[in-house]
């Protein structure tokens, strides 16, 4: 009997504690999530009654040139962004393990980029890359040429990739740095006894044991790629020739300027599925079980 009341009391306690979270999730996550599906199957303009059109929006999407352009842009962007951010963040992390003084200062200095306003640094970068900006002055003085940073599609994507990389080196570097910290020193010492070179140690010990952190950074940067908005919105407006248009820009203008939340929801679902697909693939291909014993 006493056992039973205790159990009941525990149940009540448990539910009442988790109910706050459950209610929150139901309202702010569950409800919009259900609406996303309803909207994706509807034609609506916020103002006149909504009507079901079933899969019209999906059919429209697969035949929409702009959608495929954005898919292409996103992968094109990843091609520049991921190797760049991964490489430089790794270098930053390794450098952190080497330096002895002012470590916190360096970490903070790189993290400042991560917390600064997207609008503000976009304006600074657009000055940096401007036709009369410092970069073009330099190349003009040295080689008599200017680089059309935001007028050439590949260069524009590359320039935006550089900006985003700059913003995330500190954050990703810190994740990799903590990954480096947990690799036991003893492994390196025994490898040294066996006469391993620096490169062998890096390839055979550091890289495999860093796998969990690397996968995390990789996944974060993939998810980030699908969410880019501010930099192209401020600097290129999606141009030249729609080559820097991103999913978030397309979804935003479709929902609130073209007044087509149904199609915007369809696009949002596609974006989510693509993101999930990329993350899944990355984990399948790259993630390894790691143990330090």
């Amino acid at each position: 009997m006493g056992m039973r009341t205790l159990q009941r009391r525990e149940t009540i306690k448990g539910w009442s504690i988790s109910s706050v979270y459950l209610a929150y999730t139901a309202i702010f996550w569950g409800y919009p999530f259900v609406w996303l599906f309803i909207l994706a199957l509807s034609r609506w303009n916020f103002l006149t009654p909504r009507r079901f059109v079933w899969f019209d929006n999906f059919i429209r999407m697969v035949t929409d040139d702009v959608f495929w352009q954005v898919v292409f842009n996103t992968f094109n962007f990843m091609l520049y962004f991921i190797p760049m951010v991964l490489g430089i963040a790794l270098l930053f992390a390794i450098a952190l393990t080497k330096i002895k003084f002012f470590k916190t200062f360096f970490i903070l200095a790189f993290l400042v980029a991560n917390v600064s306003s997207g609008v503000a640094y976009s304006i600074i970068f657009s000055n940096l890359f401007a036709i009369n900006g410092p970069l073009n002055r330099l190349t003009y003085n040295l080689f008599g040429k200017t680089i059309p940073w935001f007028s050439e599609p590949q260069l524009a994507l590359f320039a935006i990739a550089m900006m985003v990389t700059w913003k995330f080196i500190g954050y990703y570097g810190l994740i990799l740095y903590s990954g480096l910290q947990v690799i036991p020193r003893s492994l390196y010492e025994s490898a040294e006894l066996d006469g391993a070179t620096k490169w062998v140690k890096f390839r055979k010990i550091t890289l495999p044991l860093l796998n969990p952190s690397l996968v995390m950074v990789l996944i974060l940067s993939i998810v980030l790629t699908f969410g880019i908005f501010t930099e192209p919105f401020i600097i290129t407006g999606g141009g030249p020739m729609r080559r820097t248009l991103t999913f978030q820009m397309l979804i935003y203008t479709t929902a609130f300027q073209r007044l087509d939340p149904g199609y915007a929801s369809t696009l949002a679902m596609a974006t989510a599925l693509l993101t999930f697909g990329c993350v899944f693939l990355t984990r399948k291909l790259i993630e390894r079980e790691v143990s330090f014993v």
């Binding site: 036709i131 009369n132 007028s151």
Partner: peptide, 9 residues
């Protein structure tokens, strides 16, 4: 004229 003139040209 040019495409990217920087801020406050």
């Amino acid at each position: 004229t040019a495409a990217d003139l920087g801020a406050n040209p």
